[in-house]
Design a protein around this nucleic acid. Sequence first.
DNA 1: AATCCTTCCGAAAAGGTTTTCGGACATACA
DNA 2: TGTATGTCCGAAAACCTTTTCGGAAGGATT
Lengths: 342, 342
Amino acid sequence: MARQKNGSRARTATLTDVARLAGVSVATASKALNGREHVRVETRRRVIDAAEQLSFSPNSLARGLLAGRTGTVGLLTSDLEGRFSIPILMGAEDAFGAGQVNVFLCDARDDTIRERHHVQALLNRRVDGLIVVGSRTDPRPSLGRDLPVPVVYAYAPSDDPEDLSIICDNVAAGRQAIEHLIAAGRTRIAHISGDPTYAAARDRAEGVRAALADAGLELVGDVQYGSWSEGWGRAAAGLLLDRHADIDAIFCGSDQVARGVMDAARERGRRIPEDVAVMGFDNWEVLAADARPALSSVDMNLEEVGRAAARALFEALDGSPRSGVESLSCRLVIRGSTVSLT
Amino acid sequence: MARQKNGSRARTATLTDVARLAGVSVATASKALNGREHVRVETRRRVIDAAEQLSFSPNSLARGLLAGRTGTVGLLTSDLEGRFSIPILMGAEDAFGAGQVNVFLCDARDDTIRERHHVQALLNRRVDGLIVVGSRTDPRPSLGRDLPVPVVYAYAPSDDPEDLSIICDNVAAGRQAIEHLIAAGRTRIAHISGDPTYAAARDRAEGVRAALADAGLELVGDVQYGSWSEGWGRAAAGLLLDRHADIDAIFCGSDQVARGVMDAARERGRRIPEDVAVMGFDNWEVLAADARPALSSVDMNLEEVGRAAARALFEALDGSPRSGVESLSCRLVIRGSTVSLT
DNA sequence: AATCCTTCCGAAAAGGTTTTCGGACATACA
DNA sequence: TGTATGTCCGAAAACCTTTTCGGAAGGATT
C-alpha cells in the first residue's frame, strides 16, 4: 500500500467507492466510465462526477488480470551505453507512447544469465510482447520458440530464421556511400573500417567492393580494419595517404574514425573535400555536424528500426506474426566533407 | 490471451493447475513455492516438481493486486537523446535490477501534457514510485505533493523544496577544476563556458570565480558564454588566445567546447599541455579519451546520481522519505591535456 | 388487459494469487 | 481414555475490474 508524504495510508479510491458515491452499482459505474452503452446520460454524468471527485484511477492490474492483456511490452537491451540502443529505444517508445502501451526497460549487459532472468521477470509481469535490441549487428542467440508472447529482434538479428528481426542493411549502406563518392567524381577511393570482428564492418566492406566493381573501379589499398576509434582513423589515414598519394576519397567505418582521418589529412595539407572527400558512418550529430568541414555520413535510421519493431510487435499481437530478417535501408546525410557546399 | 507461434492459445499454467497436479490445495501450493512454513518437505518437493513440469510462472498482476505493491517504478525522462539521461537511467536500472523491481521508461519530451499523461498511466499501473530525470540542471516544476507514491527528482531538481532532488554539485565542480589547474602551476586561467541560460553554466562559473579568488587570482577575460558546441569553442578560444597571449589554462564548459579549444590552440602553435592546459566537462569518453592529447575532464558521476535516486526511492517506500536538494560531488578525470603524463 | 419491446440497472462470476483461520490428524502426556 | 500440543493442510476471503445475464420499469401495441 502506498504511503503519502505524511506517512498515512493513501487509500486510492476504487470503483466501488465511485459507485457508492454516485449511488449506482459497480457494474453501472464501470460501464459509465468506459463509455459503454445502456447507461442513461444523467447517470453517466453522476458517475463521472463522482470519479472526478475521488480522483479515481482505474487499477490496470485488475484490468489486465481480467483481460489477459496488460498493455505492456518488455524492451530488452544489451548495452544501454551503446549509442545504438538509445535511438531504437526512442523509436519504439515513440511508436508505443501514443497509445496505452508502456515499456519495461531491461538492461541485460550482454549477459545471458541476466537476460534470462529479465525475460522471466517480464513474463511474470505478463507483458504482451518483447523487443530485443542488440548492441552489434552480428546475429545473436534466439530467446527460443516456446515463449508465450511474440518477440521482435531489432538491430541484431536472431540466429533463428523463424524469429522476426528488423535490421539495417549494412551491405547496401556501403554501396550507397561509395556510389555517392563516385557521383561526386571520385575514383581513387579507400575504405578505413573498424573492428573486423563486427559483422557490420564486413558487410559494409562487401557493399563497398560491389559498388566499386559495378563502376569498374578498384579499392585503393585493402580494406583497413582496426578499431572504431579516432586514433585508429588518424593512424590508418596517415599510412594510407603517405603510401597512395592519389587517394581522393576515404569512406570510414564510423564518424570517430572519420574525425581521425580528417585530422590526419589536414596535417598532410590535403584539403577536404577538394583534395580528399571523407565520409563517415553513424551520423553521430556531435561528431559530424560540428566537424570542419561538417562530415557527410550514413545514418542508419535507428529510430525507424525501433518504430518498425514496435509496429511488427503490434501486428504479431493482432495475430499476423511475420518471420525472417527484414532490412531497412540507411540514409545518406551529405555535408561539406564530400562535396563543396559553396 | 497470448498466442504461440502456431496460433494456438498458450494457456500459461496457473497455481491451480500446479496444485491439482501435485494433489494439494492452491493454498498449500502457494506456501510451498514461496518457502512458507507449515509444509512438509515431501509435499513441498511435490509442488515444486509440479510447478517445474508445467513451467509455472506466478502472475505478478494478481500478486500485485493483492499485495498493493507491484515492484515497479516509473522513470520519467525529459529527453532520451540527451546524453545525461542515459547514465542516470543506467544507474537506476542498475540499483533496481538486482532486486525484483522493474522500470517503466517514459519519455516526456519536455512536454508538460505528455508528462502528465505518462504520470497518470503510471499511476494506473500502480507503480510503487517515480523517478523524474531532467535534461538540464535548472529547477523544474514539481509533479505536486498529492501523488499517492513517492517521487525522486534526479539531475534537475524540483522547484518545490518539499520534494527530494538528487543533483550534481556544479559549483563545487567548477571549483575542483580550477583548483586542479592551479595545482598544476597555472595562473593565467580563462573559462570558456556554454549556453548562459543553463544554470549549470552559471553555477560552474560561480565555482570558478570562488576558487580563483581563494587563490588570489583573477580570471583572464570574462567568462565566455556561448553554446556547448565545438564551433563555439574554436571561435572563443581563437579570440581569447589572440587577445591574451599569456593564457596558460582554459577551463571549458563541455568536452565539445574543449575539443574546439584544443584545435584553435594547436592552430596557433600552442602546445598542450605545456603552453596551455585544457580542461573539459562531462567526461564524454568518445570525445575525451581519443583527443590529442587525451582530455582531462570533470565527470558528473551520473550513474551514481541514478543509483542514489533509486536508493532514495527505496527508502521512501520503506517509510523514511527525505526532502530537499542533495548534491553529489563530481570527479576529476585527469588525462594528458592538463598535465604531462609522460 | 395482456403482450411485447426498449431502456436502464444490478447481481454475480471471472481472473490468479496470498493470507487467515479452522479442521484433521498424530504424538506425547496424564 | 481423555487432554494438551504440534504439525500439516484446505476452504474461503480479499484485491479490483469487466462482462454477462437477468430483472425491473415503463411505454407502445394488440
